[in-house]
Amino acid sequence: MTAEEPRPRRELVTGGPRAGRVPAPRGSAPAPPPAEPADPAVSALIRRQLRTSLTAAAALVLLIALLPLLFAVAPGLAGSSIAGVNTVWVVLGVLSYPVLWLIGRWYVARAEANESRPPDDGAAGTTG
């Protein structure tokens, strides 16, 4: 790293078909926008999105990630069967996938709604 400028600069992937390299000032991904003070509306949006993500994550934990614990404390449940097939097989092998997808679908709808909601100007707060 001592020789002056030996390192090739990476290319702007959004750049147009300009053959060869595009000099990027920091040799980094697309140059970040200039420094500016935190916008309260942005902070509010980030908090809203984080709350949505955490809610969905909580659903994931409750509905899926706690299952091993449930099967461990209730061995009778793990040994039982649904329509002749062991419950664990049915739950993990079949039911878990639609549950994961539904959580995802709920999240996508909420996240998009959060984004299209106009910034509620009063609700600005300090950054966490």
Partner: peptide, 25 residues
């Protein structure tokens, strides 16, 4: 130094016009 601007970029929906900069998509 540019943390706030970067975070805004990560979380704000893209504008509807072609992303940015000359020669963009």
């Amino acid at each position: 130094p540019r943390t706030d601007a970067t975070l805004a970029r990560l979380h704000l929906p893209e504008p509807t016009r072609p992303t940015r900069s000359p020669g963009g998509v």
